[in-house]
């Protein structure tokens, strides 16, 4: 029984990871996700895949790092990755905000010019 449960979860995680990878690829093909943002997701998927196949890996790494409870290492890595990605998103967001500001200025100038031209033509 002890051997069967990890095996089941192994198959589940491999399938889950592959489905996730398929989903990411589909989003890129449909043009809904830019390649540069997909890199981090691919990296995550590959790490998941490695640990899905290499079951003892997590335990070995935990033991080497002196982590008593292996899943907590997984949580730590996952939270670290999420933090980095969130900061990355904030940076992208700030850049977009500044670009939107510049574009709004240009739109406002164009609108003002258009109104002026229309007024000049009508008079």
């Amino acid at each position: 029984m002890e051997n069967v449960v990890p095996f089941k979860i192994q198959i589940l995680s491999i399938i889950g990871t592959l489905v996730f990878m398929y989903f990411i690829i589909r989003q890129i093909i449909r043009g809904k996700l830019r390649e540069e943002y997909s890199i981090v997701w691919f990296a995550c998927t590959i790490i998941f895949l490695i640990f899905s196949f290499w079951r003892k890996g997590l335990e070995q790494i935990s033991a080497a790092l002196g982590v008593f409870y292996p899943p907590s290492l997984l949580f730590l890595i996952a939270i670290g990755a999420i933090f980095i990605f969130l900061v990355h998103l904030s940076i992208v967001n700030s850049k977009l905000q500044s670009q939107i500001k510049d574009l709004s200025h240009e739109v406002a100038f164009l609108k003002a010019n258009k109104t002026k031209t229309t007024l000049e033509q009508s008079s």
Binding site: S104, H105, A108, F109, K111
Partner: peptide, 25 residues
């Protein structure tokens, strides 16, 4: 008077900057 009509709400800083840009250009 002249006027600029911003397409999205930029807040006081963004709004003022559009005026300064207009003046500069």
């Amino acid at each position: 008077c002249l006027y600029l009509d911003l397409p999205v709400n930029l807040g006081i800083g963004g709004g003022m900057q559009s005026g300064y840009k207009y003046a500069y250009r």
